[in-house]
């Protein structure tokens, strides 16, 4: 019999430090599959700022550099401008991209920087222990919203994809989820397209990924995967939010 599914070449052998069922692991897997399929291993450079994925460089077998919390888009801008031949992506959590790094992200997008943001929306601050994120849902309990997020005090879950779609320099924005076989395949397609947009020099691309965090949601992995469908997508609907290419993706 033929082996039809195996570990991607650009994924190091190191076991993930992520919790069981974590969406970071799935995302790393599909990204490294794509890097192999698109033959990008020797020209891709990844920027993972602090967040649970700060150690992403232990897994991606490509050039990678840490950045300060929230500054990924600025670091990627400098890197890409200095070396335009590279394929540059940031890999940012919701705290990173949608709170501390909002300015960097919006302006990199507005300048149409030819970079790709992989935006992990897990509705919490994972690394620091489950505090409220800007994307935390209303009435969702976190360690800093112990009574549930209250819009009168904490405001509303912020929709970065919709905000960035309004910015002229963005070329491609899609929201996906990594919580079912079909969704994972769609997520992979979206990231492929985002990389292609960068290869074609069309401007800023971002894929927002609704990503399970069973640990801080205090759920089993399977429950957390279901919760995305049952609850999270109601606030964060899936689909292409902006696409200037006009092309339907060929897969």
């Amino acid at each position: 019999m033929k082996k039809i599914y195996t570990r991607p070449k650009s994924l190091k052998r190191t076991p993930f430090h992520y919790c069981p069922g974590c969406g970071h692991s799935i995302t790393h897997k599909i990204m490294t599959e794509l890097i192999d399929e698109m033959n990008l291993q020797d020209k891709t450079i990844g920027i993972p700022p602090p967040g649970c994925s700060v150690f992403a460089y232990n897994y991606f077998d490509i050039d990678m550099a840490e950045s300060a919390h929230g500054r990924g888009a600025a670091v990627a801008t400098g890197l890409k401008r200095a070396y335009p031949e590279a394929i540059v992506f940031t890999y940012q959590g919701d705290g990173d991209l949608a709170a501390i790094g909002t300015a960097e992200t919006i302006h990199a997008s507005n300048r149409g920087e030819n970079i790709t943001a992989i935006f992990i929306n897990n509705a919490v601050y994972g690394m620091t222990g489950g505090q409220m994120a800007p994307t935390t849902l209303l009435s969702q309990k976190t360690t800093t919203t112990p009574y549930g997020r209250d819009d009168k005090i904490e405001g509303y879950p912020i929709k970065m994809s919709e905000i960035l779609a309004l910015v002229k320099g963005s070329a491609y924005i899609e929201r996906v989820a990594v919580n079912s076989p079909a969704n994972i395949i769609k997520a992979k397609k979206a990231i492929r397209k985002a990389f292609q947009v960068q290869i074609d020099c069309l401007g800023f691309s971002m894929v927002e990924i609704l990503s399970p965090c069973p640990t801080n949601w205090k759920m089993s992995p399977v429950e957390s995967w279901k919760w995305i469908d049952e609850v999270m997508v109601k606030e964060f609907p899936l689909g292409v939010i902006k696409d200037i290419t006009g092309k339907k993706d060929a897969g």
Binding site: A68, R71, A74, V75, G78, L79, R81, A82, A103, R111
Partner: peptide
């Protein structure tokens, strides 16, 4: 490259990125 950044924080991090590229 010249960029008028959105803040000094961004500017220094762009420098960091360019310096990464050598």
């Amino acid at each position: 490259t010249f960029i008028q950044a959105e803040s000094e924080i961004s500017a220094i991090n762009m420098v960091y990125g360019a310096s990464l590229a050598g």
